[in-house]
Amino acid sequence: MTFAVPVVDIAPYVTGTGDRAATAAAMDAACREVGFVQVVGHGVNPALADGLAAAMDAFFALPAGQKAGWRTPPEVNRGYSPPRSESLSLSLGVESASRMNDFFEAFNVGASQASYPHAPGLPQPDYAENTWPDVPGFRAAVEAWFAEASRVARTLTGVFADALHLPPDFFPAMTGHSLDVLRMVNYALPPGTVELDGELTGMGEHTDYGIVTVLWADQVPGLQVLGDDGGWHDVSPVDGALLVNLGDVTTRLTNERWRSTLHRVKPPVVDGTIRRRRSAAFFHDGDVDAVVAVLPSCLGPGEEPKYLPVTVGEHVAAKLRGSRAGVVNTAADREAARVLAARG
């Protein structure tokens, strides 16, 4: 069976016209079978993606020492991360061949306390203020994309609710002050021709942490998804599509009816030549205090929950301690088992 990432048109949920039931059914099938979806009909103006890419290029082109000035402590999920400062596989509790060896650099912004004036007293540093680099036009372009990605993510949770036969207020009730983060990534290898000596990791194998991720990416090889056949498969978006994948919160809610798909990024080396690859992932994670428990509707007769209840904050903190601080996550045994099976 050939591996393919399904394309789902969400226009009926964006425009208010069209066959929503067909869209929800197509989303359910994609989430059951793959967990990665190519979403079209999202209504995002292509000019916003162009502006985001230009802003990223301007920042990542700065000298390393200057970029380092916007680095934050590991517990603050904001600002700059230089190459080889993180290891995504540790978020699953899986040791890499070499710790902190992911060859990407990133810049994160997220929803802060100021984003949710209706919910005072949110815990810090979960809702930390952003640090903005002194790059002309950067903040405006990034905030414009953040707003649109947030709209798409919330539209998708409406599709999810229909696909899972949940009331329409289910996801809004757990995302009123959602831990939303936009991570802009540059796969920071020097340009030119390279001979690979052993394994080199662009971004280690991992699952995303929250409800859903909305990904803009270059149409450059590198992103790989773990299929049910135990093999890694290349994924590149079709023209105009946003890549969407499920996070661990959705896996827990659905008792693995829908799974957070394991994925990784290999260095963008094509025919021995390094190519530029950029991406921007918007993580829609849910409220820090929202309790994630298996939905009764996702349990079959006699079936037991595979996960104990946990808050979004507790779950995300354990994952971040792995990826950003190098502390092995011991609460991701089911995801780690999938990684180890693929390695075997």
Results as ranks from 00 to 15, higher is better:
Phe3Ser: 05
Pro6Trp: 00
Thr15Tyr: 05
Gly18Asn: 11
Ala25Ile: 11
Ala26Ile: 04
Arg32Trp: 10
Gly41Gln: 05
Ala47Met: 09
Gly51Pro: 04
Ala53Ser: 10
Leu62Cys: 11
Pro74Asp: 14
Glu86Ile: 06
Leu88Thr: 02
Ser89His: 00
Ser91His: 02
Leu92Lys: 00
Ser96Met: 13
Asp102Val: 08
Ala111Ile: 00
His118Glu: 15
Asn130Lys: 01
Pro136Leu: 13
Pro136Lys: 08
Arg139Asp: 06
Arg139Thr: 00
Glu143Met: 11
Ala144Ser: 09
Arg154Ala: 15
Thr155Leu: 02
Thr155Cys: 11
Leu156Gly: 11
Phe160Gln: 01
Phe170Ile: 01
His177Glu: 14
Val185Glu: 04
Asp197Pro: 01
Thr201Met: 06
Asp208Met: 06
Asp208Trp: 04
Tyr209His: 04
Thr213Tyr: 05
Leu223Pro: 04
Gln224Asp: 09
Pro237Thr: 14
Val244Tyr: 01
Val244Asn: 02
Thr254Gln: 03
Asn255Ile: 03
Pro267Met: 10
Arg276Lys: 08
Ser279Asp: 07
Phe282Leu: 10
His284Ala: 06
Asp289Tyr: 14
Leu295Gln: 05
Ser297Phe: 08
Ser297Leu: 11
Cys298Pro: 03
Gly300Asp: 10
Pro309Trp: 13
Gly313Ala: 14
Val316Trp: 09
Lys319Cys: 10
Lys319Tyr: 10
Arg324Gln: 07
Ala331Phe: 10
Ala332Glu: 10
Leu340Met: 15
